[in-house]
Amino acid sequence: MQPFSLFTDGSVNTPTGVGYGAYLLISLDHSPLKELQKQIKLQRFEQTSSTQLELQTLLWALGEITELGCTKDIELTVYTDSQNIIGLPKRRTRLEKNDYYSSKNKRLSHYPLYQALYRLTDNIKCHFVKVAGHQPSRDKDEIAQRFTLVDKAARRSLREALR
């Protein structure tokens, strides 16, 4: 199996509901950050929230990976700062058992996105790693530096769109 790393992040303007998702898919390489920056993909999302945008961005990235048709041959490590995404694999059994209803018998607002994520990850061997966002540069390891690339790309795109 060939290992790949997927870095995803999003930035949303809550009052307008406009957000930008960014992802970077790389194999095990040690390319300079400037080179990796050129590989980042961006997409605009509308009528979204921060939680929804994180899910939409991950689904978009996984969808594009699936379209490549090589999902059985890769092992994917997903790096995100979204606590919601990190917890979803462990919550799957309970969510499916309860048909995506909360303990207060209310349907979870993002359940279609959860279902889509579970369908996609059934076909891709992946695991999720929480990245601490917005650390001082001196404290960033190689993973955090790569994650910062997608974080900054999403924020920059949103700022430019709101001008």
Rank of each mutant, 00 (worst) to 15 (best):
G133L: 02
R156K: 15
T48F: 02
D29K: 05
L162M: 12
T57W: 09
G17A: 05
Q115W: 06
Y111K: 01
L113H: 05
L149T: 09
R94N: 08
H134T: 03
A61G: 09
R119V: 13
D81Y: 04
D29F: 01
D99C: 02
S5Y: 14
S102P: 04
L88W: 03
E142S: 13
Q56R: 14
A116F: 05
T121E: 10
L33Q: 08
D99A: 11
F45Q: 09
S109Y: 01
H127E: 12
Y20D: 03
F7P: 04
S5L: 14
I65V: 13
E64M: 13
V131K: 05
E46R: 07
N13D: 15
K34D: 15
L33N: 07
L42Q: 10
S82T: 06
G10C: 13
V129P: 02
G63P: 02
Y20C: 03
P32V: 04
Q145C: 12
A116H: 11
S50L: 07
G63D: 10
Q56P: 02
A153Q: 11
F45W: 09
L162A: 01
R146Y: 07
T51I: 05
S11K: 03
L120N: 01
I65H: 04
A61R: 08
T80Y: 06
T77E: 11
L158M: 06
Q83C: 00
